[in-house]
Amino acid sequence: MDYAKLTEDLKAAQREVWLVTGEMEDGGTANLDKVFLTLPRAHEAKVLEAIRNAGLYCRAKRRWIGDGYMLTVSKGQGDVNTKAVTVFVAEMERRGYEVLAYRQMD
């Protein structure tokens, strides 16, 4: 696993989020949507460091649909958060990562 590349890919996905959500109104239903990133056989401490170095938040590896990392990719609460997760997932998939959108209304 190339952790420097992971950091750069996370940063690139976050830039896409900012481009799309920068001017959005944050209406709609408040939600706890997150990005679930699966990285089999990756070293947890190094993944968490890459996530932090990309300016994102993840508390720790967790179990949802397998083992992975639940990422916060937006400071939005409603529509902005929903769109941010959608854009981030699409960009990370485009870059070859196994990633899912976790959706939960508050």
Rank of each mutant, 00 (worst) to 15 (best):
T21D: 10
G22V: 04
E25Y: 08
D26T: 06
D26S: 06
D26Y: 03
D26G: 06
D26K: 07
D26H: 04
G28Q: 01
G28C: 01
T29S: 10
T29F: 05
T29C: 05
T29N: 08
N31H: 08
N31P: 03
L32D: 10
D33T: 02
V35T: 10
V35C: 08
V35Q: 07
F36V: 00
F36G: 00
F36M: 02
L37R: 01
L37N: 00
T38M: 14
T38W: 06
T38C: 12
T38K: 15
L39W: 05
P40A: 02
P40T: 02
R41L: 11
A42T: 05
H43Q: 12
H43P: 01
H43Y: 15
E44G: 00
E44P: 01
K46T: 12
K46W: 13
L48F: 04
E49G: 08
E49K: 13
A50K: 07
A50W: 08
I51W: 00
R52V: 14
G55S: 03
L56Y: 04
L56R: 03
Y57H: 12
Y57N: 09
Y57V: 07
Y57P: 03
C58E: 09
C58A: 13
R59Y: 10
R59W: 08
A60W: 06
A60P: 00
A60S: 09
K61R: 15
R62D: 12
W64K: 15
I65F: 11
G66S: 06
G66V: 02
G66K: 03
G68V: 01
G68T: 08
Y69E: 08
